[in-house]
Nucleic acid binder design. Sequence first.
RNA 1: UGGGCUAUAGCCAAGUGGUUAAGGCAUCGGACUUUGACUCCGACACCGGUGGUUCGAAUCCACCUAGCCCAGCCA
Length: 548
Amino acid sequence: MVPMEDKNFIRRIIEEDLKNNKHERPITRFPPEPNGLLHLGHARAIIMNYVLAKDYGGKFYLRFDDTNPITEDTLFIEGIKRDVAWLGCEWDELRYASNYFERMYELAMHLVRQGKAYVDDLSAEQIREYRGDLKTPGKESPYRERSIEENIDLFRRMRAGEFADGEKVLRAKIDMASPNMNLRDPVIYRIQHTPHHNTGEAWCIYPMYDFAHPLEDAIEGITHSLCSLEFENHRPIYNWFVEHTEVENQPRQIEFGKLKIADQVIGKRNIRKLVEAGIVDGWDDPRLITLSGLRRRGVPPAAIHDFIRALGLPKSEGETELSMLDEYIRDHLKTSARRIHAVLDPIKVVITNYPEGQSETLSAAYNRENEALGSRELTFSDTLYIEREDFLEEKPNKKWKRLSLGLEVRLMHAYFIKAERVEYDDEGRVETIYATYDPRTKSGSGFKERKPNGTIHYVDARTARPAEFRLYQDLMLDTDEQRPITERVDADSKQVRHGFIESGVDIQERERFQFVRHGYFVADDDSEKNRPVFNRTVALKSSFKPKK
RNA sequence: UGGGCUAUAGCCAAGUGGUUAAGGCAUCGGACUUUGACUCCGACACCGGUGGUUCGAAUCCACCUAGCCCAGCCA
């Protein structure tokens, strides 16, 4: 699975612009509002902005669009920075829209002086009524024709804090009859006596998105301002402000389709409900596709890059299945992760013909596909653990490639063993399997006289390390948006197993492993010295279809 | 007839008048296998519909259908 070069229409636009010397190099930006956490959907905007700039020798900025003090929080700023950095999209500059408040005010005043903006005394409700609706044109505000002098004076006094919240707004004078609702004299400044995380008490008026965004882009010299499709209707205003404020740079807004992932909980409100209901373990729960959740799940950022690039940058909006990401994750971990033995649900095996109390070590490569990862010593003794699901007293069908009574399997990297009899516990469950091993079948010996009924993995019970395994399944049960989120979710989507991993493997912080025959796992921060905890990142693919 | 946009397989997506209509995911076969993994081989599209232009249309035109976005002093 080789990720192809992404072809997309924006790439073509940039190449065209460079060819025509419209720009020396592209400058792009990712402009989040610090009012929430980032999820996989944002990864498209982050990575594409980054890649498109970097591929053409340009620059990429991270800019916080912090123009609304009542919804924003510095906590999110740190979270967003961490997530963008985790994706490896190193920003050339970190910017804040709020650093341009003074300049924006001047530009608004410029509009006022040109007679292109006016102070409106209408209430919010009145403005809504005057705006008309989708099919009827709006009416002009009675304050629309105030003199320029009066507007200048009023706007100054708005800034000076002479008015209460909502008492007045500054509006662009465009066209109340426009079929594009956004052009019906959009509000560009509102009064908000709220301290700002960055500017503190310096301002009581704050610019609106439609006004602020194009100017932020222009001030920073952004060449290609990428945003999602819902802003297509805003492009005319974007251009209107760029033109009429007469800013030096003329950024170009280009819209692309948002990345949506099928069957995932993504809304802030919904996630909060699940967190509060205790169904998930926080915003970084591995079942969530928040970037922090993906990180905790062990997803390599490079896999997200490949996934995003493979999807390209379309103008259509669909829902991508997460299985596609899973495949990129496996692809990255396939050769990079050490592959070791873990038994998640152990059952004891006693080797009756192995010298009691004795043990031996067997050398095993960490990853046959990547010798650079080296090898380790596995121990073998008369008492082992194998996976409970790898044993069935009677072979159920001829496809069964695991252990059964009277059958012989290979223990990976060790010997063939043959199950002879079992002992049950009080509940009738198999407690111990008694087996014999054949010393001639030692791994690497080239023994060919018999074919085992499959290969399974094991750990040596005498040396195995206890470990906790957290297995995650799809959180979402159904996508009926009418029903409350807490009912649409699988409360059992997280399963915790207590088992063992082989001894002697040094586990680095957040290291990713392949647990042979199970899948890819990452060491969780909850790990303790004597009890590592692993999250399953993604299971191995399997063509095994149990039939009943 | 408010305006803007989108439509290629179960999912994503190339394709910009001449191709057997890329590729990935998923699925289904098969080979190989000390991971039922990996790898390898094979299968899998009447391009939303209908007409038209053209020697030739997924690509151009017309009409139609379906879906998305817009009536925050949110972004």
